[in-house]
């Protein structure tokens, strides 16, 4: 098992390669910062923007690190703190809530023995409540690393979804 990485304190060559690749893919264009950060975050195991990565990116794009920090804290899909490998994002907006997403949250909490916002000891799972991600026709729904799992209205289906994550 890979060691549990709490927080990245120094930049690694892998991170540099990741940032360089993503920045190239976005034509070194600082206006595409939001997309760049999303792609970097996708490539980081714990799906967040580590501080040294932000500093490196600011040099790479010749923008202020304050701008990066502002953007990371502003957009709800960007994170400045480590999350889980699989963060289970449960929609917390009305279309899912009226379809009883509260029960879905309770089921997830029970199955994973986890509170909302907590990360499992191995860094694999975390439950978060997020605003509408546009899967209202299949509510209640969960989004994991960009993939939507809908109709999670029974424990059976929730378990199915969790199994697919391994």
């Amino acid at each position: 098992m890979k060691p549990f990485v709490q927080k990245l304190d120094e930049l690694t060559p892998e991170m540099v390669a990741l940032v360089d690749r993503v920045v190239e893919e976005h034509q070194n264009d600082p206006t595409q910062l939001v997309g760049i950060l999303l792609d970097i975050q996708d490539g980081v195991e714990r799906h967040y923007i580590p501080e040294p990565v932000a500093y490196y990116l600011s040099q790479r794009l010749s923008i202020r690190v304050t701008q990066i920090y502002d953007v990371v804290t502003f957009y709800s899909m960007l994170y400045d703190k480590p999350r889980a490998k699989y963060t289970l994002e449960v929609c917390n907006s009305a279309p899912c809530r009226v379809k009883d997403s509260d029960t879905l949250v309770e089921t997830l909490k029970r199955l994973l023995n986890l509170e909302v916002g907590e990360v499992t000891y191995d860094g694999r799972f975390c439950i978060e409540k997020v605003p509408c991600f546009g899967a209202c026709d299949v509510s209640p729904a969960v989004r994991v690393n960009g993939a939507v799992y809908g109709h999670l209205d029974s424990e059976e289906r929730v378990l199915d979804m969790l199994r697919q994550l391994d």
Binding site: V65, T66, Y69, T73
Partner: peptide, 27 residues
């Protein structure tokens, strides 16, 4: 300089430095 900036949003919106660092450790 741009050492200070708005960060976060809604009630969590505040003016601070990058990564909330002490001012002397920023730009």
């Amino acid at each position: 300089i741009g050492a200070l900036s708005f960060t976060g949003r809604s009630a969590a919106c505040k003016v601070t430095t990058a990564f909330d660092l002490p001012m002397n450790e920023t730009d």
